[in-house]
Design a protein around this nucleic acid. Structure first.
Lengths: 230, 230
DNA sequence: CGTCGCTTTGATCTAAATCAAGTTGAGTGG
DNA sequence: CCACTCAACTTGATTTAGATCAAAGCGACG
């Protein structure tokens, strides 16, 4: 899995030494690339980062916190396309506009890079170009898996898939600390918040998971979840 | 909208002059690029072009016919991610493997380019790299719209969206000649074939469309469909 | 310690799935 | 040229998974 990171140059162009990465991070080539200037910004819980169809001026990376990107229908029905967690890049476009809106799920620090500078870096360095393509390709892979979930999986299968995804992406010491509410999960999985809640309760009753609080989940039987996941 | 075209060099490297494009086709830069060799191949109706998780050796472009790309669950439930029509590129990956399987919907001619050569072209020509990224980005845009459809739209809204998409992509002389069966449409829209059939019958009864045969559709009221589309 | 947003749980409803016949029409062979 | 076949499609009857409507819990925060 790609661990998406972009330049850590400070505003003004002075470099800030990033913590040395132990892994062969695919996106390290972007780090400290000449001419790239990144700044940090904090968004409050539920604050909009950009709107649907807004001009795409920046590319973002989550430093701390969590972000949801989503589309709305005219009557308010919402589909969340992805959750972006620490390290994830979002808001990267090839066209002029953002195709989904982005909001902070909780108080969130993001790093942002001017999109034009990134394009220029890609123009002079084929590795940067390749990395941008890889980020988009990774988002496409996620979307393809999610279409299968939304089109063909049962409610219980969707929740199982969600739990395994969150376990992979944000488990610390075996626990999942969910940043998002039941409504967000429902809008991500194409379900209502009540159905999400009932599915989680049923999995708890079966001993597949433990809920120390509504958003603190302990997976007790990943094998059972993997079976539901197909 | 991107009209995705790739090299038209003949096997053996001799160039075949392509018909001059009247439009500023975004993917013309790939046409005749040095070192790219494309060959053509014909697949019969329902023939597999590549399987899910198969190593991605080629990138494909539909010349004539139509292709479905899909994912399966272990019990046979299928989600079609996209239909690829004349001119469309498919099978482009940044990773080692195809993430969806591809099958010809009817007898179909495809042009194929070795994936390694394309990557080398992208390495030496930043415009090629940019075009590959744009193709992937276009697929992501489609997938994002389709997630909204699969997660949040009603059956009638899904069918309306499908009809407008097909009208845009393959209408000739005001008529849509569908290459795919009702089951394919259902597996694309996350519905059963019966629900697709009932929705089409209802739209015909309301005078929104005319069915001269099951696969020959005339849209009589695009405005009404656009309203359903939200 | 009261309030308010989030979550759970229960009762009922409904859109779409499933099950089940028929109908149509394109292709095949007599 | 017509009858037969078979897959694709339509339509009807019934079921059901998940939505909707409703009412308590609960827990964090002022």
């Amino acid at each position: 899995m790609l661990s998406q990171s972009i330049s850590t140059s400070a505003p003004g162009g002075r470099k800030v030494a990033p913590a040395p990465a132990a892994t062969t991070d695919h996106f390290d080539v972007l780090t400290g690339h000449a001419g790239l200037v990144a700044s940090e910004f904090i968004y409050r819980k539920d604050e909009e980062i950009y709107g649907e169809d807004e001009t795409a001026e920046y590319v973002y990376q989550v430093v701390r916190g969590a972000v949801r990107t989503y589309k709305l229908l005219s009557d308010g029905r919402r589909q969340i396309g992805a959750f972006h967690l620490a390290g994830d890049v979002f808001g990267l476009e090839t066209g002029m506009k953002h195709r989904l809106a982005a909001e902070a799920i909780l108080d969130t620090t993001v790093r942002l890079v001017n999109r034009r500078s990134l394009e220029q870096a890609a123009h002079s360095d084929v590795r940067v170009a390749r990395d941008l393509w890889s980020i988009t390709s990774g988002e496409l892979r996620h979307a393809e898996n999610h279409m299968l979930l939304l089109g063909r999986k049962t409610a219980m299968e969707r929740v199982a898939t969600f739990l395994l995804e969150m376990d992979r992406r944000l488990a610390r010491a075996g626990m999942i600390a969910l940043p998002m509410c039941r409504r967000d999960i429902g809008d991500y999985l194409g379900l209502t918040l009540e159905t999400v809640s009932r599915s989680l309760s049923e999995l708890q009753a079966k001993g597949v998971l433990g809920l120390s609080s509504a958003r603190q989940i302990l997976l007790r039987d990943r094998h059972q979840l993997a079976v539901l996941n197909c």
